[in-house]
Amino acid sequence: MILDLGDIRAADAPRVGPKMARLGELAAAGWRVPDGYAVTADALADWLPAAAQAELDGLLGALIPAQAAGDPGALAGISARARELVEGQPLPAVLA
């Protein structure tokens, strides 16, 4: 659920993202990188309430058509609402 940066390797990229995986590899190779940790994607799998997740899924589906239409206003609105949905939820107690 929460991994120390020193324990992260390239194979962990699907769980923690490619940037954290690369930093973990660099740390393991002796490079100086900041101390840190990563919260796995699985840790947040059921975090959003179903209604918020459904709205977020709809917003994400609207991104490609808005981008194809070249509508920066629509993109900004979609992004702002998605951010509100995510930031408006309390963290699970285990992560807080």
Rank of each mutant, 00 (worst) to 15 (best):
L3P: 02
D46C: 09
P49K: 05
A11F: 06
E84L: 11
G36H: 12
G6F: 11
L60A: 10
L91Q: 06
L85M: 15
Q67L: 15
Q53L: 03
A29P: 05
T40V: 08
L60I: 08
L85I: 13
P72D: 12
V33Q: 11
R22W: 09
I2A: 04
P92E: 07
V33S: 14
L75Q: 09
M20D: 02
D42C: 05
A38H: 02
D12H: 14
Q67N: 15
D57T: 14
L75C: 06
V16M: 13
A13V: 00
D71C: 10
L91C: 06
A66V: 09
A96M: 08
A80K: 15
R9V: 14
Q53Y: 04
A66G: 05
R81H: 10
R9W: 03
A52G: 01
R83H: 12
A54G: 03
G70I: 07
L59A: 03
A27K: 10
T40Y: 09
V86A: 06
L48A: 06
A29F: 04
A80M: 13
A54S: 13
A43M: 06
G6A: 13
G77N: 09
L48F: 02
M20T: 12
D7V: 10
V86N: 10
D42V: 11
G30K: 10
R9E: 14
Y37V: 15
W31F: 14
P90N: 08
A80R: 10
A51Q: 05
G6N: 08
Q53G: 03
A50C: 03
Q89D: 04
I2W: 09
G17T: 03
G77P: 02
A51R: 02
P18Y: 12
L5N: 05
G70Y: 12
A43L: 07
A54V: 05
Q53T: 08
L44G: 04
V94G: 03
